[in-house]
Design a protein around this nucleic acid. Structure first.
Length: 587
RNA sequence: CGGGAUGUGGCGCAGCUUGGUAGCGCACCUGCUUUGGGAGCAGGGGGUCGCCGGUUCGAAUCCGGCCAUCCCGACCA
């Protein structure tokens, strides 16, 4: 394959458009790989489309080992999504449209419904399972705020697959097969990744892991421990301290603490009027009770109070992940008026809990275990209670992971402090269970002739996003820098000069490389000066840059490694062999 | 959806305060010179200044409304 720069549909830009923020995105636009077509919409130009297809090819090759490829419509009828409730649940993120007959349609954000129905359509026996199907399809989400170029567009290319099994063991095997396939895929893509435990989110289901590509420009926060534990921030499990003996705790006592509606003021007053002997009071000694109002999918509202150490804020994402599908809102003044037992700023757990005076459900941070002693509200203005002991003076209804995660928190695997990092979600695998099969009636007969509901898994790889992730993690000050196999070409051959023998030499080398099986991007432009071509070659980021120019007089051409910048002169007669060797080695 | 900002040739920007009929760099076209790190000189093409309305003899500039886009947050692959 030979691509001639003289006729390639590309124009490199010296400056990036103002709407491109991330370095990789800027480089993709500057080098003429993609163009913005609208908010969150991108056109793929020849170089970019070659890269996209390379990524797609690798994904497809690895998926073909474990699943069968199909292709379903991107434009979908409403009915299946109504049956599963997602027509409503997806809300404004769903692209909806109406056909000329007035029927509602949607542009698929993901395809669980269609795959489930397709299997239901054709299969009805346990003998047909297990089954895994996948597609590589354009997906649509009407993002509230598209951003970061290809990383969060409104149209994107995604590989999604779905597994169908008779039982939990089968699902686990299908899940594991996908996990292995993803590892192989991302290894081949040359993408660094971390596999983190995740919440399955609004889709329902149990086990779930994300593949995150670590980079500061990523929008997901995750943690990792020295011992290898890694989790999405939403899914981090708090280390539970040992319970302390209750009888050692001094009795609780209520004290006057005027004007202390916040943790900060409370700590100050406590140190001023009730100093500790061993050390000053700190926010972590206090128990903060946050009042929330939950709205359930059926529209009912119930209050919920969350107790957590006073030095921690509630992490809304974590909280909502654990309360889904209920939605969380702060308590309003009207809500306080309706619950007179709650004294704003001085709420204490003595009146909280399903069986208590208020009857309000009370969940606490897992660190609040039996025997721990707290300074907390006395349920009257200007007064707090000290040495209130969990398990003796109050009993929560349960625990909840709602507190923010901090760097340095102990890791669940006991291997040391957690480190916080950012990453791009490039893959997500999870066990859906029977949510969709139930909703859509996907059942097969088992060996006894009994109908059983199929259990499913769902697995995604963001193909266009993977391109962006590779660009963001490999870009340098000169431009793009693709891994072999992803790059739009194997070799970027630069014709540096206009003399007949140089032109002829470069043309011959290009032809020989193509003959040897290389894809060659040949900068044969006679009107451009060498400096421009060198800059363009570095910007475009093909792994091997070969320069045919003034060295030819001494019988050499230059081979440059884009990533390292290493340059080597090799004899003209050895050039093809050496280049092919390098291309082959890199593959 | 809250907060902030911006819309002027393909890209990056100036002009707007103080109204007078649009400019600079890059890119593009022609010619000459140059030719190993985004060349120089000369000439040239391309813009209803986001849209609608208002004020005015006259609006890119002032006023009102709308739209779009980007950034932070909320939300999300």
């Amino acid at each position: 394959m030979l691509l001639r720069m003289s006729s390639l549909f590309v124009r490199t830009l010296r400056e990036a458009p103002a709407d491109a923020e991330l370095p990789g995105h800027q480089a993709l636009v500057r080098s003429g790989y993609i163009r913005r077509a609208g908010s969150g919409l991108f056109s793929w130009l020849p170089l970019g489309y070659r890269v996209l297809r390379n990524v797609e090819r690798i994904v497809r090759e690895e998926m073909d080992r474990i699943a069968q490829e199909v292709h379903f419509p991107a434009l979908l009828p409403k009915e299946p999504y109504e049956a599963t409730g997602r027509w409503e649940e997806y809300g404004d993120n769903l692209f909806r449209l109406v056909d000329r007959r007035g029927n509602d349609h949607l542009l698929g954000p993901t395809h669980e419904e269609l795959f489930t129905l397709a299997v239901k359509d054709l299969y009805s026996s346990y003998k047909d399972l297990p089954l895994s199907l996948y597609q590589i399809q354009t997906k649509y989400r009407d993002e509230a705020r598209p951003r970061a170029g290809l990383l969060r567009g409104r149209e994107f290319l995604m590989k999604d697959s779905y597994s169908f099994d008779l039982d939990d063991d089968g699902l686990e095997a299908s899940y594991q097969a996908h996990r292995d396939a993803y590892i192989a895929t991302f290894d081949r893509l040359g993408l660094e990744y971390v596999i983190v435990s995740a919440m399955s989110g609004a889709m329902g289901g149990s086990r779930s892991e994300e593949f995150l590509c670590p980079t500061p420009v990523g929008e997901d926060t995750f943690v990792r421990s020295p011992g290898g534990y890694a989790a999405n921030a939403e899914a981090v499990v708090t280390v539970v301290p040992d319970a302390a003996p209750i009888d050692e705790a001094p009795p609780a006592h209520v004290e006057d603490t005027p004007d202390t509606p916040t943790i900060e003021t409370l700590v100050a007053v406590a140190n001023d009027r009730f100093p500790r002997e061993d050390r000053p009071w700190v926010a972590a000694d206090t128990l903060k009770n946050v009042v929330l109002m939950l709205t359930h999918p059926d529209g009912t509202r119930t209050p919920l109070i969350i107790g957590l150490p006073g030095d921690r804020d509630v992490d809304l994402k974590r909280l909502e992940a654990h309360l889904a599908p209920a939605e969380v809102a702060p308590f309003t003044d009207a809500d306080f008026a309706a619950h007179p037992t709650l004294v704003k700023g001085y709420i204490g757990p003595q009146v909280l809990g399903a069986d208590s005076a208020s009857g309000i459900r009370y969940l606490v941070d897992p660190r609040i275990v039996a025997g721990t002693r707290w300074v907390t509200g006395a349920n009257e203005p200007g007064r707090h209670v000290f040495d209130l002991t969990c398990g003796r003076d109050f009993t929560p209804d349960g625990t909840i992971e709602a507190a923010e995660i901090r760097a340095g928190d102990p890791a669940p695997d006991g291997s040391g402090p957690l480190e916080l990092a950012r990453g791009i979600e490039i893959g997500h695998i999870f066990q859906l269970g029977r949510k969709y099969a139930d909703a859509l009636g996907l059942q097969v007969q088992d060996e006894q002739g009994k109908l059983v509901t199929v259990t499913m898994g769902s697995y995604g790889i963001g193909v266009s996003r993977a391109v962006a992730a590779i660009a963001e993690t490999t870009v340098d000050e000169l431009g793009l820098c693709w891994p072999a196999g992803i790059a739009p070409a194997d070799v970027h051959l630069v014709l540096a000069g206009k003399a007949d023998d140089i032109v002829a030499g470069a043309e011959r080398l290009a032809a020989e490389l193509v003959e040897a099986g290389c894809t060659v991007l040949f900068d044969d432009r006679l009107k451009e000066r060498p400096g421009v071509k060198f800059k363009d070659a570095e910007l475009i980021g093909v792994p091997h840059i070969v320069v045919v120019g003034k060295g030819l007089a001494e019988g050499t051409v230059e081979i440059k490694d884009r990533a390292s910048g290493q340059r080597d002169d090799v004899g003209v007669d050895d050039a093809v062999t050496e280049i092919v060797r390098r291309v082959g080695a890199a593959r």
